[in-house]
C-alpha cells in the first residue's frame, strides 16, 4: 500500500474510532454505521480466515496430498460438514443434528478431561497447605484453606444453607465478595490504561496534536 493508502486508512480508522466512541453519548447514525460495518467486515474476515486456516490446510490440502487411510478418512469430517449444510433445506434439516451431536460430543469429552486436569486436580493440590509454625505464612495458609473450603460449601446444593452450613456458606460469600472487589479494582486500573492508549492514538496518529 502506498502512502495515499495509509492516509486513507488512517482516516478510516479514525472515523471508525470516533464513531464507536460516540456510542457513549447515545446511539446515533455514526455508531450504527460503524457497528454494521464492523459486523459485516469481521464476518467476512472470519469466513476467509476459517477457509484459509481450517478448511484448506486441514481438509483440502491433506486430501490432495495424503494417500490411503489418511486420505479417505477425511471423508468423515467432510461429510459431517456437508450434512450440516442440510439445514438449508427444511426437509433434510433434521440431518444436521448428526454433526451437531458430534460437536457437542467433542465439547462434552473435553469438558471432562480438561476440567479435571486443568482445574480440579491442580487447584486441590495447590490448596494442600500446612501451617508451618507461628508465622505469617501459616496464617495465610490457614486463611486460604478456610477460604477455599467455605467457598466450595457455598455451592453445596442439596441442603438448605442453615445451621453450620449456613455459617460456612456465609463466610464463603465474604471471600467471594472480597475476591470480586479485588478483581474489579485490578481490572479497572488495567482498563483505564487501555483507554489512555486509544486517546493517545487520536491525539498523535490522527490529529497530530501530540508529536
Amino acid at each position: 500500500m502506498g502512502s495515499l493508502g495509509m492516509i486513507i486508512g488512517t482516516w478510516l480508522a479514525g472515523f471508525l474510532t470516533l464513531a464507536i466512541l460516540s456510542f457513549l453519548y447515545k446511539d446515533n447514525p455514526f455508531y450504527k454505521l460503524a457497528e454494521h460495518l464492523y459486523v459485516g467486515v469481521s464476518a467476512g474476515y472470519w469466513l476467509i480466515y476459517v477457509a484459509f486456516f481450517d478448511v484448506e490446510p486441514m481438509l483440502v490440502t491433506p486430501f490432495m496430498e495424503e494417500t490411503g487411510v489418511e486420505k479417505w478418512i477425511l471423508i468423515v469430517p467432510a461429510a459431517l460438514g456437508i450434512i450440516m449444510l442440510s439445514r438449508w433445506f427444511p426437509k433434510t434439516a433434521w440431518l444436521s443434528r448428526w454433526p451437531i451431536a458430534f460437536t457437542v460430543g467433542v465439547g462434552a469429552g473435553l469438558g471432562i478431561t480438561a476440567n479435571l486436569q486443568g482445574y480440579v486436580v491442580p487447584q486441590v493440590q495447590a490448596t494442600l497447605l500446612p501451617m508451618t509454625g507461628f508465622n505469617l505464612v501459616s496464617l495465610n495458609n490457614l486463611i486460604l484453606v478456610v477460604g477455599v473450603v467455605t467457598t466450595i460449601l457455598y455451592f453445596y446444593f442439596s441442603k438448605a444453607h442453615k445451621g453450620v452450613l449456613g455459617v460456612t456458606a456465609k463466610i464463603g460469600i465474604v471471600f467471594i465478595m472480597v475476591s470480586f472487589g479485588a478483581s474489579f479494582g485490578y481490572t479497572l486500573m488495567a482498563r483505564i490504561s487501555l483507554l489512555i492508549g486509544r486517546l493517545y492514538f487520536i491525539l498523535t496518529d490522527l490529529l497530530r496534536v501530540i508529536d
Partner: peptide, 25 residues
C-alpha cells in the same frame, strides 16, 4: 490470599459442575 481462595473455590465447583454436565451429555 482471599482473592485466590475464592477464585479457587469457584473454579473447583465450576469444574465439578462442568464435568458432571459433560457426563450427563
Amino acid at each position: 490470599v482471599p482473592q485466590l481462595a475464592a477464585k479457587r473455590g469457584i473454579q473447583i465447583g465450576a469444574a465439578l459442575g462442568a464435568v458432571s454436565m459433560s457426563l450427563r451429555i
